[in-house]
Design a protein around this nucleic acid. Structure first.
Lengths: 343, 343
DNA sequence: CATAGTGGGACTTTAAACGTCCAGATAGAG
DNA sequence: CTCTATCTGGACGTTTAAAGTCCCACTATG
């Protein structure tokens, strides 16, 4: 396949560009369907007229449907898109990035999607899609999937699709309240993901700020304890990686902790833990649920994070992680490789 | 690879056509270099202007050189062409033909090249090229290669290229005089092939028509006997397959034999043997050299024959052959498959 | 029922591809 | 050495396809 692309690059250089264009069009339509020409053209950054020609072509190929409400993907288009995903990763050199990252960081697997989520918000959803298909890949029987919060995880939940495989899967939030907005809380995302997957889910109703006494008594409540046990025995953990400062600010972090985080030069955050650039824990939010030790024993840990600005955070987290699966984007991946080359 | 082609067919339907066009241009240039635009355009059956555009493009890609004497292939172009050969066989459905033939006829391997040598004479040279690369593939140490005569084998000799592998290879004519023109005789072709390959060769100087006495005494001559022994112990045999009637007419076949061949409904001819449609020998030319029994014990027998008109002959010969390697063209292959489907 | 967003038709502009013709250069034959 | 045939490459008008522009009819949704 590699040589096939190389030959085509020599023999038909601009056709690969056209292929990429059509691929992106299909991809966007799938993402935003039903959608109109103008909106889509604006989104893709191409003229409306050329989009129109392309759309007409794609329609003639039976790859997309076109109704009064807008354009949407046919099942043929869906199939083509599925196969294209793999090829385009190779064409765009994303596989190359994956190889490099695998060489340089201790990860079990890497998937890089095109784009930079710093610049194009929809790239998060592509990471979400990649994450979902990766999960399906390593799903066995009646798994317990623990998920965290964050906008990236929200995107993952949004892209979740129902599947027979999820019939006996249980979704749980990885940890209790971390001080986030309700839309970004693990509970919310867990529920959303389970609904989209047509699977089951349990939630963890523990308030954010508790006195020590209440805390100790509440975790002895049978209803709570049962969920906590499920969480500790989860087989898959899906979590985001945040920039330490951004996360601390977004959460209602007390000034005392804020200072601690800053002074210890934390750069990364994941499920309530803050790491410095060497991957050492410098602070943790006190809450129930899975702990860092527990994570190390989970067979399948998937970290999802993208955008060039998160490269440092990703590197720091990966350093201490136990060969997790990383799902990221082109922006972050390139930055990671660049940083590594300059060291 | 199969799916890659299918997707591209959907997404860029004319891509494969363009690819094929450029492939053919490169192929022809390699075959006829150095060659001018007009001659080439005429040969390819396309307008001179479009050829000019294509050539300009290919030149910019550094795939061909262009001098006052005409156009020729660069080493880059050669590499691309090598890789393309395989891909185009897949694209043009030739691999499909190969699969079908392998299913239906008792052959060890089949290679089908594009075109029909009945209509385009240069297709024989393509078969020649395919044959040469196939030989190299199954060449071991100091092999002895026996070759027959015929226009197709002449094309094989013409396409032979020198290679380190041929250093210890010995070329010999498979059989003595069969009544052909000197240009199509096994001796001539054997010498030509060996020269092109930079290998060694021995010839068999035995006149066509001999009395029984002379015959028996000549084969006892040490010089002759040595060559005959080499022939009998050859490790590779390359031969053509002819239409029985055509071959009989081309050779100075005596009326008596002619009648015998016709009455027994011979359809195929190979190294002096005539076969009917069931693969049974109905006549043989009396001469020294390898015999049909000997051929059965040669580890690698390669039959080269193309053109739709030869399909019947190929089928008949293959029926009695002991899992040989067949090198043919699209015209013959399609006819073979068609005949087989209608049975 | 109004409005924002949709597809699609029609026309003009622009660029690329193509057909055609010819001049200058070069290799090979005589 | 000369002559001729063949080669490339430039020039220019023509054709055809793509892209820009504007507008209209329709429809889903609030």
């Amino acid at each position: 396949m590699r040589q096939w692309i190389d030959v085509q690059r020599k023999l038909l250089p601009d056709l690969l560009a056209i292929m990429q264009k059509r691929y992106e069009i299909l991809q966007h339509i799938r993402l935003m369907q039903p959608i109109g020409r103008r909106t889509l053209a604006l989104n893709l950054g191409i003229s409306e007229r050329v989009l129109r020609s392309e759309v007409q072509f794609l329609k003639e190929q039976n790859l997309l449907d076109i109704t009064a409400a807008g354009m949407s993907i046919t099942s043929d288009g869906h199939d083509v898109l599925m196969q294209l995903e793999d090829m385009m990763r190779e064409v765009l050199g994303l596989k190359e990035l994956e190889r490099k990252i695998k060489q340089r960081l201790p990860v079990a697997d890497v998937i890089v999607v095109a784009g930079d989520s710093d610049q194009s918000p929809w790239v998060k959803r592509e990471m979400g899609r990649a994450c979902v298909s990766r999960i399906k890949h390593s799903l066995t029987g009646n798994a317990i999937v623990a998920v965290t919060g964050g906008t990236t995880l929200a995107a993952v939940a949004e892209m979740m699709t129902p599947d027979m495989k999820y019939r006996d899967v249980l979704f749980v939030p990885a940890r209790g309240g971390l001080g986030e907005d309700v839309t970004n809380q693990a509970n919310t995302i867990c529920a959303r993901m389970a609904e989209k997957a047509m699977g089951h889910y349990r939630l963890l109703h523990v308030p954010d700020q508790l006195s020590a006494e209440t805390y100790h008594s509440i975790i002895e409540e049978p209803a709570i304890k049962e969920v906590l046990d499920l969480i500790k025995s989860s087989t898959i953990v899906i979590h985001g990686i945040g920039d330490a400062k951004t996360m601390a600010e977004r959460r209602k972090t007390p000034p005392k902790d804020m200072k601690k985080i800053e002074q210890n030069e934390a750069v990364a955050e994941a499920f309530g833990y803050y790491f410095n650039q060497h991957g050492e824990v410098v602070h943790k939010v006190n809450t129930v649920g899975i702990q860092l030790e527990d994570v190390r024993h989970v067979p399948c840990v998937i970290a999802v994070a993208g955008g060039a600005s998160k490269a440092k955070a990703i590197r720091a987290y990966i350093k201490q992680a136990n060969r997790c699966i990383l799902i990221t984007d082109e922006g972050a991946a390139k930055q990671l490789v660049r940083d590594d080359s300059s060291l």
